[in-house]
Design a binder for these strands. Structure first.
Length: 475
RNA sequence: GGCCCGUUCGUCUAGUGGUUAGGACUCAGGGUUUUCAUCUCUGCAACAGGAGUUCGAUUCUCCUACGGGCUACCA
């Protein structure tokens, strides 16, 4: 009965896009499976016909693929397994673990409202728990709609959570909860149990919001005489206001992070750090490395607050590790037409030169514009500081002449020329470097000027310097 | 309201019955750099509160406070 290789699953309901919390749940499941050489399965919980949408299924799958969280077997759709749930339902009815409840929805919600008004906790009054066969026959023959409720026994349910430890719940806190609706469709707690058993799930790793569902599910496992899997509940991810992460905290969808230019590996890395730590001071992980060091024991109990600043830092760390070629490919994965007319080698060199200065692919793209187009304007503040008056023009003109005659256009060649002019004119190199940077890029910040010059090429540099001489210092 | 879970710098976290309570991000300042970024150094900053156990509690127990989750014919 005991299997050595764990089988875990991620079971989103397709009522929206994959968000950060879901992504982390998927990631932890995936890491657990891979770490133990087990299987990671995907199940779509689409029994809510109204809210489930195929586009969300597609979006979720796409997001998971982008994150690199691939699933090992075919996707299980609950909507296609209705007959299997029926069998479980019939069996529960036959064994008297479930009973028909003929109470109307309206009556029940009225009772609930009244209980709430009194400030009491509502529980189903078990009106139908022990009605006689005769009454049942009568209701059935008159086609009175009914739901099926689990006959919850009186006991204390104990289970061991891999993260929270032992949890005890007295069933007196539980309803005879509904396991099948009036239309015969099963409800969540029932399908989860049937599916998890059917899929051979050994470890249920899910959000902490399911912790209170667990005793209910254990009751169903027992009623169905099925072995219970192990449980591990993950703490929630909170927004900066300490409330559950949601739209009002800005981006929450995985795809939005991709579109903002974050690398999937960086997002995985950051998500892993939210509620988990390796037990060492290592912080930057590739997915394989994460798989190696991951362990459920290091997962935190308390909810973690999402911090975009740290995500950005992690992202920058990952970005820096990529080659120019990988970065170019990355930017084009978001902006397919990015610099399509340029030489790949040139773009790669640009990326290589700028990667230390970008936290995301989008930022990388944004700060690279002047490598592809002459600056249209010049940063005003920088002009005031670096190109105060016409004396700068004569200085730059000197350099322009020197550069024009420079035959060997290299980084050091450019540097030697510039320093030579500066020395001849009796000024510090900075007096020349800053204005030239402005002329070439239009901005005051950027990589080494001489590396820039080398990359831009002689022709472009001369042209831009000439243009600037004509436009500055007048704005 | 009831039940379950939690509480170390602003945030992510390490940690122990006796520690100067450590690291990372952020922020501030210094150094390096032609600028920015990187890098580096320094600084700011935490054991929720109260009892109890103990020679000694951040660490163990209880209570309170606060936070989160659940309390559907949603999942």
């Amino acid at each position: 009965m005991t299997t050595n290789t764990p089988r875990v699953r991620f079971a989103p309901s397709p009522t929206g896009q994959l968000h950060l919390g879901g992504a982390r749940t998927a990631l932890f499941n995936w890491l657990f499976a891979k770490h133990h050489h087990g299987k990671f399965l995907l199940r779509i919980e689409d029994t809510d016909r109204q809210r489930s949408k195929q586009e969300h299924v597609d979006q979720i799958c796409e997001s998971m693929l982008w994150l690199g969280l691939t699933w090992d077997e075919g996707i299980v759709y609950q909507s296609k397994r209705l007959d299997i749930y029926q069998k479980a339902i019939q069996s529960l009815l036959k064994t008297d673990n479930a009973y028909r409840c003929f109470c109307s929805k309206d009556d029940l919600s009225r009772q609930r409202e009244e209980a709430q008004k009194r400030g009491d906790g509502y529980q189903y009054n078990q009106a139908c728990r022990n009605i006689s066969e005769d009454v049942i026959e009568q209701k059935l023959s008159s086609s009175t709609p009914f739901t099926l409720r689990l006959r919850v026994p009186e006991k204390v349910i104990t289970f061991k959570d891999r993260i929270y430890g032992e949890i005890n719940v007295n069933t007196s806190e539980l309803d005879d909860f509904i396991i099948a609706r009036t239309d015969g469709h099963p409800t969540y707690n029932l399908v989860v149990v049937v599916d998890d058993d059917d899929m051979g799930i050994t470890h249920v790793i899910r959000g902490e919001d399911h912790i209170s569902n667990t005793p209910k599910q254990i009751l169903i496992y027992d009623a169905l005489v099925l072995p219970t899997p192990e449980f591990a509940h993950l703490p929630m991810i909170l927004g900066p206001d300490k409330r559950r992460l949601s739209k009002r905290h800005g981006a929450t969808g995985v795809q939005e992070y991709r579109d903002m230019g974050y690398l999937s590996e960086a997002l995985n890395n950051y998500l892993a750090l939210l509620g988990w730590n390796p037990g060492t001071e290592e912080e930057i992980f590739s997915l394989p490395r994460l798989t190696d060091v991951f362990s459920v024991e290091q997962i935190q109990k308390k909810p973690a607050v999402y911090d975009e600043k740290k995500l950005q830092w992690v992202s920058g760390q990952h970005l820096f590790k990529l080659s120019g070629k990988e970065l170019m490919t990355g930017v084009r994965s978001i902006f397919p037409d990015w610099q399509k007319n340029e030489e790949d080698t040139y773009i790669e060199n640009v990326c290589e030169l700028l990667k230390l200065r970008a936290k995301s692919l989008t930022e990388l793209k944004n700060i690279s514009t002047y490598f592809f187009k002459d600056p249209k304007s010049y940063e005003e503040k920088a002009v005031r500081k670096r190109w105060k008056n016409d004396s700068v023009n004569s200085l730059v003109k000197q350099l322009l002449d020197e550069l024009t005659s420079l035959e060997n256009w290299t980084e050091s060649g450019a540097e030697i020329s510039l320093r030579k002019v500066a020395e001849e004119e009796g000024v510090s190199a900075g007096k020349l470097i800053h204005p030239v940077r402005l002329a070439l890029s239009g901005v005051s910040a950027g990589p080494s000027l001489f590396a820039m010059m080398k990359l831009l090429g002689k022709e472009t540099c001369l042209r831009r310097i000439e243009t600037a001489l004509g436009k500055l210092p007048t704005l």
